[in-house]
Amino acid sequence: MRTIKNIHAASYHPIADLITFNPLPSAKLSQIDPFIFLNHHGHQTYPKNNQGLPFGPHPHRGMETVTFILEGDIMHKDSGGHESVIEAGGIQWMTAGSGLIHAEVSSDKFKKEGGDLEILQLWVNLPAKHKMTKPRYLGLQKDEITNFKLDEGKINVQLIAGEWEEKKGSFKTLSPITMSTIHMNAGGRFTKNIPQDENIFFYVVKGSVKVNGEVITYRNLVEFNQDGDSLTVEASEDAIIILGHALPLNEPMVAQGPFVMNTQQEIMQAYQDYQAGKFGTWNH
């Protein structure tokens, strides 16, 4: 079984009136290669006639964003012409690649009516060979995503990407990566085999779980050693976790603002290209 190296508590970094916790990166952990950044927004309840999410038009290059909508909704627009409103239980996967401009805001309905909101966004690094790939975006609603039960129905796995016991995730990825959201009822238990050479992304969104015998509470990220090939997870109470794993890229990474590249020179080029209008035009 994998042993735990460290447990990293998410720190509180509100954005405007949006409650936000951020476990990665931190002072003690720069990345879990290729997983490089996580923001956990909410849980909070918005009143009627609210301003919604504050993420207006901004650029990205060299990485991917995976957005988990647990409650509320998110309206996506980008310079590639993609537009969607994804509701609770849905997932967005955006490959910034060579560069695009996008906005992620709340729908008009949510801003008018208010309601509960909890959304997480994970950044996944792209390998050097895919940094300048053509941007792409896919948003899927809850009922469009592979899901299955474990432990006599006590666990529901939403398989976003990769494979799990011969089941296939709903998003096709440029590099092999497994990603899932797991809802666990108290007492639910599962074991998952994960190759020893892959890095594990394990974040507790809600509740409390035991991982290989150690208790992990909500808003904590687990960093594992590379010393085993299985995880056993048991829910101490009703819980939600995000579990991903992938081979590390083992490449130099320079992250600055919304750009994630391999060298400082490539970062400077990204800013120049953005200012020169090479990320497309924003006409929303």
Score class of each variant (00 low, 15 high):
Q264P: 03
P127G: 04
S170Y: 02
G213M: 04
D197S: 14
S236V: 15
F224T: 00
S107Q: 02
V215N: 06
K278C: 04
L231Y: 01
M132D: 15
P14E: 10
D227F: 03
I101C: 04
K278D: 06
T181Y: 07
F224K: 02
T173C: 04
T95E: 06
G277Y: 11
T3E: 01
G52Q: 03
A96D: 09
I86P: 01
A270G: 06
L221R: 11
G187F: 07
H41S: 13
R61I: 10
H40K: 11
I240T: 15
G188D: 13
E266Y: 07
F35L: 10
D108G: 04
N225T: 05
E266M: 09
I155D: 04
N199I: 05
K206M: 12
V233F: 09
P34V: 11
T232Y: 01
H245Q: 08
E113L: 10
F279R: 04
T3I: 00
H58K: 00
T181D: 09
A235F: 10
I19Q: 13
T281C: 01
W282C: 07
M268C: 00
H245R: 08
M94Y: 06
I240E: 12
V222T: 15
N125K: 12
M268T: 10
V254R: 05
I240A: 01
I242F: 12
S30A: 15
H82L: 00
E266K: 10
L53A: 07
L18Q: 08
I194K: 11
Y137K: 00
E71D: 15
T146E: 12
G56W: 03
K112R: 14
P176M: 07
T146F: 00
Q141T: 06
T191G: 03
M268S: 11
I267M: 03
Y46M: 14
T3F: 04
L138G: 00
G153R: 12
S170K: 05
L138I: 13
K5N: 13
A16M: 12
M63A: 06
A96R: 09
G42H: 09
V205S: 08
R219T: 14
G277I: 11
I216T: 03
L120H: 09
Q275H: 14
T146A: 10
A276N: 15
E163V: 07
E64A: 11
L70P: 00
P57C: 08
I160C: 08
I240V: 15
S98T: 09
P57T: 07
H60K: 04
G187S: 03
F37R: 10
K109M: 03
Q275L: 12
M268V: 00
H130W: 02
R2G: 00
V204D: 00
F21Q: 14
T95S: 08
G228R: 02
T133A: 13
G90H: 11
G114C: 09
Y137H: 06
I200V: 13
N283R: 13
N262Q: 10
L231P: 00
F110G: 10
L174D: 12
F279I: 07
G89Y: 05
L122H: 08
I19G: 02
S236K: 14
G97Q: 01
R136K: 14
W164Y: 15
T263G: 03
E71V: 05
E165T: 06
I241M: 13
N193C: 06
M184Q: 11
S11N: 14
G162H: 06
F110A: 04
N147G: 01
Q275S: 10
A16H: 12
E223F: 01
E64S: 13
V205Y: 11
